[in-house]
Computed example of a mutant assay.
Amino acid sequence: MLTRKQLELLDFIRTRVEAEGVPPSFDEMKDALDLKSKSGIHRLITALEERGFIRRLAHRARALEIVKFPETTERSGFKPRVVEGSRVDPAPRPSTALPVEVESAANAMAIPLMGRIAAGVPIEAIAHVSDHITVPNAMVSGRGAHYALEVKGDSMIEAGINDGDVVVIREQVSAENGDIVVALVEDLEATLKRFRRRGNMIALEAANPAYETRVFPDHMVKVQGKLVGLIRTY
């Protein structure tokens, strides 16, 4: 799965290679994606390379080779949707097993599993559905779409969120102080943290003293959703 920015960059590189026979420079990629620094491009390139979509050729300037392109053509970004399930999956994956018994299909709903979210140092924002899981209707009550993310890291352990847990998120773009949210930082990275507004600054607080609170100007942080449920496998 790729983020919206990763997809944009991969598509831009492919278009330039097809049109001119050579990849764009880092400056051209930065301008095309409207980023403020080339460090953001470096992180995107590294992520694409790690996922096997591109290859950097040694000892050649501006040498990027596209290895593959995602099968999906979705470009809409972080737009999870709710799918109402008519039955409970007969063989759920171990990592998404429910700690409660769903008595009937009428009491359950399938929601998209969007991949992993960092409870630690932010990782790339999630943009595409990787699977679906079935959860009790009570967990997704209320207005708005819901989606699930697998937690990576231990920065929220004192809030009862462990590495490997699956969190259920209600999609929304605002938050109250103290809410645990999915926060998108600089349109590049996503993390699960407690939200605090301090004037025109946003603090993303960990629930583990080993991690420092990270503070950003409010225009650099976008709330993607609020934590409303937790699924744990024992």
Results as ranks from 00 to 15, higher is better:
residue 215 V to G: 00
residue 193 K to Y: 09
residue 215 V to S: 06
residue 152 K to L: 14
residue 124 E to Q: 08
residue 71 E to K: 09
residue 29 M to P: 03
residue 75 R to T: 14
residue 64 L to N: 00
residue 224 Q to Y: 05
residue 75 R to E: 13
residue 33 L to G: 13
residue 94 P to G: 12
residue 232 R to L: 00
residue 91 A to T: 13
residue 233 T to R: 08
residue 137 N to K: 11
residue 194 R to F: 03
residue 40 G to H: 01
residue 53 F to C: 08
residue 138 A to W: 04
residue 69 F to D: 10
residue 213 T to Q: 03
residue 68 K to F: 08
residue 208 N to P: 09
residue 202 I to H: 01
residue 75 R to I: 09
residue 199 G to S: 01
residue 43 R to N: 04
residue 109 M to W: 01
residue 207 A to D: 11
residue 146 H to K: 14
residue 26 F to K: 12
residue 107 N to S: 14
residue 138 A to C: 00
residue 196 R to I: 15
residue 213 T to S: 07
residue 166 V to D: 06
residue 20 E to W: 01
residue 30 K to C: 06
residue 60 R to F: 04
residue 159 A to E: 04
residue 36 K to Q: 14
residue 37 S to C: 06
residue 125 A to T: 13
residue 46 T to G: 07
residue 220 M to W: 00
residue 137 N to I: 13
residue 173 V to D: 14
residue 83 V to L: 09
residue 42 H to N: 06
residue 79 K to L: 09
residue 24 P to S: 13
residue 10 L to C: 07
residue 56 R to S: 10
residue 220 M to D: 08
residue 123 I to C: 03
residue 192 L to N: 10
residue 59 H to A: 09
residue 70 P to R: 05
residue 208 N to D: 12
residue 220 M to I: 03
residue 162 N to I: 15
residue 193 K to A: 10
residue 23 P to V: 02
residue 80 P to K: 08
residue 4 R to N: 04
residue 145 A to D: 12
residue 221 V to T: 03
residue 17 V to W: 05
residue 129 V to N: 14
residue 4 R to M: 05
residue 38 K to R: 12
residue 14 R to V: 12
residue 70 P to I: 06
residue 80 P to R: 08
residue 3 T to I: 06
residue 207 A to V: 02
residue 206 A to V: 11
residue 51 R to W: 04
residue 112 P to C: 00
residue 178 G to Q: 03
residue 105 A to H: 12
residue 190 A to F: 06
residue 10 L to W: 04
